[in-house]
Deep mutational scan, measured.
Amino acid sequence: VSKLITEALSVSQERVGMSLVALKKALAAAGYDVEKNNSRIKLSLKSLVNKGILVQTRGTGASGSFKLS
C-alpha cells in the first residue's frame, strides 16, 4: 500500500499535495480495493509521515493533504 501511495503522490501535480479523498480515488483507479482496505491506507499514511517520507500539509491524523518530502 505504501508503494502505491508514494507512486500516486509522485504523479500528482498539486503544489499543496493530494487530499485523502483524491488519494483514494487515485488508488481506486489503479485497481486497489479502497473500501475493503481503508484502515490499511490510513495506517500506511501515518507510518509514511512518521518515517519522514510524506509531509502532511493540512489536517490531522490520516485526514487532510499529503505530499512527498
Rank of each mutant, 00 (worst) to 15 (best):
L43G: 11
A8W: 12
Q13N: 06
G64V: 15
T6P: 00
G52Y: 03
L48N: 01
R40W: 06
A28C: 07
N37I: 15
L20R: 02
N37Y: 05
S12A: 12
L48I: 02
A26G: 00
G64W: 10
E35I: 09
I41D: 01
N50Y: 10
A26T: 09
A22K: 07
K42E: 15
Q13L: 04
T6F: 02
V16H: 12
N50L: 04
V34R: 05
S39F: 01
L68Q: 04
S63P: 12
I41N: 02
S44T: 14
S65H: 10
L9V: 05
K3S: 05
K51V: 02
S44L: 09
E14N: 02
E7T: 04
S39L: 04
G17A: 11
T6M: 09
V11A: 13
I53A: 09
I53C: 08
R15Q: 08
K42W: 03
K67Y: 07
G64M: 15
A29T: 12
L45P: 02
V55S: 14
L23C: 04
V16N: 14
S2C: 03
R15P: 07
L27H: 00
V11M: 05
Q13E: 11
K67R: 12
E7F: 00
V11K: 14
M18C: 08
V55C: 10
I53K: 10
A26W: 07
K36I: 01
L20T: 04
K3R: 05
V21G: 14
L27V: 06
K25I: 01
E7Q: 03
M18V: 04
Q13H: 06
S44N: 08
V34P: 06
S47Q: 13
G52H: 05
S69K: 12
L45H: 00
G64Y: 11
A22L: 03
V49P: 03
M18N: 13
F66Y: 11
K3D: 08
E35L: 07
G52D: 10
F66S: 09
R58Q: 14
G59S: 09
I53T: 10
V16F: 06
N38D: 01
K25D: 07
A28N: 07
S12P: 02
E7C: 02
N50I: 03
Q56L: 07
R58T: 14
S44A: 15
G64Q: 14
K25F: 00
S12G: 13
T60I: 09
V55K: 15
V21Q: 15
A30N: 05
V34H: 03
L45W: 09
L68H: 04
M18E: 09
Q13G: 06
T60S: 13
G64T: 15
S65Y: 12
S2M: 04
A29W: 04
A30S: 10
K42A: 09
R58D: 13
K42R: 09
K42L: 14
I53S: 10
N50A: 12
L48F: 03
Y32S: 08
K67M: 11
L20S: 02
S65T: 14
L9N: 00
I53P: 06
V16T: 12
Q56K: 14
L27M: 07
N38R: 03
E35K: 14
K67L: 07
K67H: 08
L45Y: 01
K36G: 05
S2T: 08
K24A: 01
L48K: 00
M18G: 08
A22H: 08
K36P: 01
N38H: 03
A22G: 03
V21P: 06
V21A: 14
M18L: 10
R15S: 10
S44W: 03
K46E: 11
T6L: 06
E35D: 03
L20W: 12
I41Q: 02
S19A: 06
L48W: 03
I5V: 05
K51S: 07
I5D: 00
S19N: 10
V49R: 05
R15W: 01
R15T: 14
K46C: 01
S47R: 10
A30H: 04
K46V: 07
A8N: 02
G61N: 14
R15K: 15
G17I: 05
E7D: 09
D33V: 13
E7I: 01
E35N: 11
V11D: 08
S12I: 14
V21S: 13
Q13I: 05
T6E: 09
N37P: 07
K51N: 10
N50E: 13
I5A: 01
L23W: 02
L23M: 06
L43E: 15
A22C: 12
S10E: 03
K67G: 09
A28D: 05
L54N: 05
A62T: 12
G61S: 11
G31Q: 05
V21Y: 06
T60G: 12
Q13K: 13
K3G: 02
L45N: 00
S39G: 10
N50G: 09
K51L: 05
D33M: 15
I53L: 11
G17S: 06
A22Y: 12
M18Y: 02
N50M: 03
N37E: 13
S69R: 08
T57L: 12
K42V: 12
G64C: 15
E7K: 09
I5E: 00
Y32P: 06
V16K: 07
A28E: 07
T57R: 12
Q13P: 03
L48D: 03
T6K: 14
D33T: 12
F66P: 09
A62G: 15
S2E: 15
R15N: 14
L68I: 06
L23A: 03
V16I: 11
K24H: 01
K46T: 06
K36D: 03
Y32W: 09
Q56E: 15
G31T: 05
K67S: 13
K24E: 04
L20Y: 13
S19W: 08
S39M: 06
A22S: 14
L27K: 00
K25W: 01
G31I: 04
K3L: 02
I41L: 09
K46P: 00
N38G: 09
I5N: 01
S39D: 12
T6N: 12
F66N: 09
Q13D: 06
S39Q: 14
N50H: 06
G59A: 08
T6V: 08
V16R: 01
S39P: 03
S63W: 11
G17F: 02
S44P: 01
A62R: 10
G52S: 08
Q13M: 04
K67W: 06
A28L: 10
K51I: 02
A29N: 13
M18S: 13
R40D: 15
V55Y: 08
K51H: 05
E14M: 01
M18I: 04
K46L: 07
T60Y: 06
I53Y: 07
L54T: 06
E7S: 02
L54F: 12
E35M: 08
V1H: 00
K36V: 02
G31V: 08
K3Y: 01
G17Q: 10
L48V: 02
S44M: 11
L48M: 10
N50C: 04
E35F: 05
V49W: 02
K36N: 12
N38M: 14
S19I: 10
L68K: 11
A30V: 08
I41A: 03
S63V: 12
F66D: 14
A62E: 15
I5W: 02
G59Q: 10
S12Q: 12
T60F: 06
E14D: 05
S10Y: 05
V1T: 04
G17P: 02
L9H: 00
L20D: 04
R15H: 11
A29L: 05
G17T: 08
Q13A: 05
G59C: 12
L68D: 08
A62P: 12
S12K: 05
S44I: 06
A22F: 03
K46F: 03
L48C: 01
I41F: 11
L54W: 10
R58S: 15
K36L: 04
R15D: 15
I53F: 12
E35Y: 12
L54H: 04
I5H: 00
A62D: 13
A30M: 13
V34K: 09
G64D: 12
A62S: 11
G59F: 10
K25Y: 00
V1N: 02
G17C: 07
V21K: 15
F66A: 13
A30W: 08
L23R: 00
A22V: 04
Q13Y: 06
S69H: 02
L9F: 11
S10H: 05
N37L: 11
L45M: 03
L23I: 10
S39N: 14
A8F: 06
S69L: 08
S47L: 06
M18K: 15
N37M: 02
T6Q: 13
S47M: 11
T57Q: 12
G52L: 06
V49I: 12
L27P: 00
V34Q: 05
N37S: 12
V49G: 01
T60C: 11
V34T: 11
A8G: 02
R40G: 04
E7A: 00
D33A: 14
V11N: 08
S65R: 05
I41M: 07
S2V: 01
V1F: 11
K42P: 01
K42T: 11
S47I: 01
G61Y: 06
T57C: 12
S2L: 03
L27C: 03
G61W: 07
E35P: 04
A28R: 13
N38S: 14
R15I: 04
I53Q: 13
